[in-house]
Nucleic acid binder design. Sequence first.
DNA 1: ATGTCACAGTCCCTGTGA
Length: 253
Amino acid sequence: MKVATWNVNSLSARWPRVESWLIDQHPDVVLIQETKQTDVKFPFAQLEALGYESAHYGQGQWNGVAILSRIGLSDVERGFGDADAEARIIGATTAGVRVYSCYVPNGRAIDNPHYQYKLEWLSKLHQLVERRDRARHIVVGGDFNVAPTDLDCYDPSVFVGATHVSEAERDALRALERSGLVDLTRALNPGEPCYSWWDYRNGSFRRGWGLRIDLLFVDRDLLDKASSSYVDRDARKGEKPSDHAPVVGEFTI
DNA sequence: ATGTCACAGTCCCTGTGA
């Protein structure tokens, strides 16, 4: 079972890249973030032609998350079931595994109200993880907008006092780990940066100025069944790329 | 810090978000 998470930064703008990537890489399950589409525009039919069932939680101009699967899709869950109007989390069951596609709020700046929204959002995610059905495998993947440690940041000195690296954000990820989840890419690639995002500006990709903020959290039993996890940097190259690369996990179930 | 990209509306430029 091959699972990927990818922030596509507009599925409308990225469709040619997404379609060719699905054909080339044949993932079984794809967790997508930032579709920036309403459900009306979502390419359900094109994905079905490629063999994928899809579930979308669309908003329009901003946000928007989706799950694609070629191995079944049921019990779709949109949002946390609260008053939050932003489309940032969708869950579904595929091949007996509960999967979530998450687009964690950016936070903007430590002194910005959006940063508090980010921490509250991560707290709600933690509650969801705590409430999970522990008889099932779980994958909580997405754009977390947090670099878990300094290894996940190309130059920590640039980010002093910034979002994405603060202790409160990192502790929110550690809370997921205390609930029994494991950061798959880090577990299988200790000591390697594995950046997944590079700013469009400054030639950041060419210079290697990246962050590892796109993560796949899995339960410990699923880690035991994992064979590899990697970043597909090739998807960040070429014509009209997203600023994020897909992060892949492979399992023998 | 900022050598970019995508969106919507003010609509071929500008403000906003990332």
